[in-house]
């Protein structure tokens, strides 16, 4: 009788089902119409099947975004799960598109699908990478900016997982502040 190792044929289930979205800036369409759901997955194998199939962030045109969100959460401030939330924001220099962008974005995806933030992973809604001429951005979105413990834990682990230098700080901003800001910078609620 043949004994088959289940590892060889069972896909590895993730804690959550995730949706990958793609935003392409077409000015003739509404913001929402430009936001397209690419695919959903809930296993390690299906994550890689999708990731290996699509363009790296650094190859996207300026104005495009990828967003990875838990199934049922739309990648916008208005979603009920994002409304009171905010984001840990990494702003990259133009030069970092070549050196760091793809590595940081993959690191961000692995933090999400691998549930890197322990009990605070439930506070994570998703992550977004914005490809922009003036400098790309990567952010992890969480559901409640008032959950100080969850937000700061997520920020500390995130920074460590990406291997960001100690002297580099990243800031957390509420979506409410980001959406009503008048200048180009939003004040940080937390910094790690």
């Amino acid at each position: 009788q043949e004994i088959v190792n289940p590892e060889a044929y069972i896909k590895h289930p993730l804690q959550n089902r995730w949706s990958l979205w793609f935003f392409k800036n077409d000015k003739s369409k509404t913001w929402q119409a430009n936001q397209r759901l690419i695919s959903k997955f809930d296993t390690v194998e299906d994550f890689w099947a999708l990731y290996n199939h699509i363009q790296l962030s650094s190859n996207l045109m300026s104005g495009c975004d990828y967003s990875l969100f838990k199934d049922g959460i739309e990648p916008m401030w208005e979603d009920e799960r994002n409304r009171r939330g905010g984001r840990w924001l990494i702003t990259l220099t133009k030069q970092q598109r070549r050196s760091d962008l793809d590595c940081y974005w993959l690191g961000t995806l692995l933090c999400l699908v691998g549930e890197a933030f322990d009990d605070y992973s439930d506070d994570v809604c998703g992550a977004v990478v914005n490809i922009r001429t003036k400098g790309d951005k990567i952010a992890i979105w969480t559901s409640d900016y008032e959950n100080r413990e969850a937000v700061t834990h997520i920020g500390r682990v995130y920074k460590e997982r990406l291997g960001l230098p100690m002297k580099m700080t990243i800031g957390y901003q509420s979506h409410a502040d980001t959406s009503t800001k008048s200048g180009s910078s939003t004040k940080n609620k937390f910094v790690v």
């Binding site: 896909k11 804690q15 194998e45 890689w48 699908v113």
Partner: peptide, 20 residues
């Protein structure tokens, strides 16, 4: 408990042929 996977574990599957 949560299904947590670290970076090394996840990366090991990147180029493994997926089963159907």
């Amino acid at each position: 408990g949560k299904r947590q996977y670290d970076r090394g574990f996840l990366l090991a599957f990147q180029f493994m042929p997926a089963c159907i």
